[in-house]
């Protein structure tokens, strides 16, 4: 059965690119526009891996990851941060919030898929 990936990004172009790349790799993709939308989706979906941006309106990636980790059922779900940020403090903040990994945009589709498969293993 194919893995389900939840992508959380406020950019339509980035969401479209992620969907294009991940569907081509055989994943089922669910998309959210920001952290709050992501939580709404998580009320009814159980993705195998979550890929989230950091800078988003309403609820950013840090808040989203914290909320995800507060849910007992989601503690083990790998959460990869996909961002253009390279700031070490922000990276540490994501790590403390419970992120599994940090990927810097622009992403290489093949390597992103590889990273998703490996953290989901």
């Amino acid at each position: 059965m194919s893995m389900t990936i939840l992508t959380v990004d406020d950019s339509r172009a980035m969401r479209d690119m992620l969907r294009h790349s991940l569907v081509a790799a055989g994943f089922r993709v669910i998309q959210a526009e920001d952290g709050l939308h992501g939580l709404e989706i998580l009320a009814s979906e159980s993705p195998d891996v979550i890929v989230t941006d950091i800078n988003m309106p309403r609820m950013d990636g840090f808040g989203f990851i914290q909320a995800v980790r507060q849910d007992e059922a989601r503690r083990a779900t790998p959460v990869l941060v996909l961002t253009t940020e390279v700031d070490i403090e922000k990276k540490n903040r994501a790590r403390e919030a419970g992120a599994t990994g940090w990927i810097v945009k622009p992403f290489d589709p093949e390597k992103l898929v590889d990273a998703i498969r490996r953290v989901a293993a």
Binding site: K91, A94, R95, A99, T100, G101, W102, I103, V104, P106, F107, D108, K111, L112, A115, V119
Partner: peptide
């Protein structure tokens, strides 16, 4: 790797 891709596993 290619295109400046960088992945860090925490």
């Amino acid at each position: 790797g290619d295109n400046g891709f960088c992945f860090e596993f925490f």
